[in-house]
């Protein structure tokens, strides 16, 4: 499981960074989204990967904390998702404004040499 999760994070981050370095604004925003998925998974992984361990205390199961998953990274992921979602929306607006003002979807607002 660790291998799969780390591979998933690696692939998401790798493709995100590649897209981020591309000259088109749409590629940049997709790259940012992929990168934020990778980071969210990474935060989740930092709470240690556990299977079948609930993050919320169960009165029937008792108070032995070794049976529970760490709830804090999950809460952090939630916040991170909300913030990156809002930022992506904001970036989209700026992207559209830039497209309208410059009539180009290049990140510099004009076509480069390539």
């Amino acid at each position: 499981m660790e291998l799969i999760v780390s591979l998933a994070i690696g692939i998401l981050a790798g493709s995100g960074i590649w897209l981020l370095l591309r000259p088109r604004t749409f590629q940049v925003i997709i790259g940012l989204s992929l990168l934020s998925y990778a980071v969210n998974l990474f935060i989740f992984g930092m709470g240690r990967l556990r299977v079948g361990a609930p993050p919320v205390l169960d009165p029937a199961a008792g108070g032995d904390i070794s049976r529970y998953a760490d709830p804090l990274p999950q809460a952090l992921v939630l916040t991170a998702i909300v913030i990156s979602f809002a930022m992506t929306a904001l970036f989209l607006v700026v992207l559209l404004a830039s497209r309208g003002l410059t009539r180009s979807d290049h990140v510099d607002g004009r076509e480069g040499g390539s």
């Binding site: 940049v28 980071v39 991170a80 913030i83 830039s98 990140v107």
Partner: peptide, 24 residues
Amino acid sequence: VRAGLHYIAVNLVAALVFLVGVSM
């Protein structure tokens, strides 16, 4: 708008780097 686009992109990436650091 052009400068803002760069500014936002750079700072969004910085925010993600921040998150990686915090979680580590």
